[in-house]
């Protein structure tokens, strides 16, 4: 179970994996996530969006960034090896219908969870404008996939090493100024990016959906670790989300909660790197 059937490094720290999980592959819908752990015993449980699925092969596609110990351990696994476990799909699926024009804004690793939503929106008959960005050319992922489903695509990098030198909010603002205005925006990326995307779209009254990636343990509503304030009320990302009306989300608070274990995470990562050196991985 949970065998890795395909693995590809997308950039220095971004990895793509197809993993055997037939029931999840069968059940998952755009916008949903899974809880995975690199090993069965004492590994950390982390939420990852399902980036795609092949129901015939019984595999799901995970795209993740190597940021902490769990993702580093996953990145070290090879085809033929297995993840500890995969549980899901979790969260409410994206509400997909024909809205008209949908702007999809992805930043960094956020392009991965955005792709299945953009694809589903396209299949529902929407016109898709994609804005995908990253810090530099090397870190940009899934450009070809977005090209294939977009009616219009704008690529930006922070340093101008590829595409337009801009933050995603700049082209977003220009698109919001067009007449007619886009009917919906979907923004997925770092919290700070989503926050500024929402500030931009709010000015133009463009409804904006965001997908939140908070810290979770069980992913089924039991722990409440993932809670965020939406419209002044406490919501659980795992069962009430992961998608919310971005104009209602308290991003500042969410960012603080995301950093809750920064020091401990760094300690775990340092220990793991040391272990890797000792066993000659790097």
């Amino acid at each position: 179970m949970y065998e890795i059937t395909h693995k590809k490094q997308l950039s220095e720290n971004a990895f793509l994996m197809d993993v055997q999980a037939p029931l999840v592959a069968n059940a998952r819908k755009a916008g949903q996530f899974v809880i995975v752990s690199p090993n069965t015993e004492a590994g950390e449980r982390i939420p990852l969006t399902v980036a795609g699925a092949d129901t015939a092969a019984g595999t799901i596609r995970l795209i993740f960034q190597r940021v902490g110990k769990a993702t580093a351990q996953m990145a070290d696994l090879q085809v033929g090896q297995s993840l500890g476990y995969v549980a899901g799909p979790l969260g409410k699926p994206t509400h997909v219908e024909k809205f008209g024009t949908v702007v999809c804004i992805g930043g960094g690793i956020g392009n991965a969870p955005l792709l299945p939503i953009a694809t589903a929106m396209k299949e529902a008959g929407n016109r898709i404008i994609s804005i995908i960005g990253s810090r530099n050319k090397e870190l940009l992922i899934l450009e070809e996939d977005f090209k294939a489903i977009s009616d219009e695509i704008i690529v930006v990098t922070d340093d101008g090493s590829y595409g337009r030198k801009a933050l995603v909010t700049q082209p977003l603002e220009e698109i919001c100024q067009r007449q007619p205005r886009p009917d919906l925006a979907v923004a997925i990326g770092p919290a700070i990016m989503m926050k500024f995307c929402c500030e931009t779209t709010k000015k133009y009254n463009v409804p904006t959906q965001v997908s939140l990636n908070t810290i979770m343990v069980d992913g089924t509503g039991m722990c409440g670790g993932c809670r965020v304030e939406v419209g002044g009320k406490t919501q659980f990302v795992c069962v009430d989300g992961p998608e919310f009306d971005g104009h209602q989300v308290n991003f500042d608070q969410m960012m603080k909660r995301q950093g809750a274990y920064k020091d401990l995470e760094k300690k775990a990562m340092d220990q793991y790197q040391e272990h890797r050196c000792r066993i000659g991985l790097k």
């Binding site: 509503g221 722990c223 670790g225 809670r227 069962v239 909660r257 809750a260």
Partner: peptide
């Protein structure tokens, strides 16, 4: 399996479980 909170200010702070 859905924990209750007090609904008082500050419950979203880091360190509240």
């Amino acid at each position: 399996g859905l924990p209750k909170f007090m609904n008082i200010p500050g419950e979203q702070l880091v360190g509240v479980y």
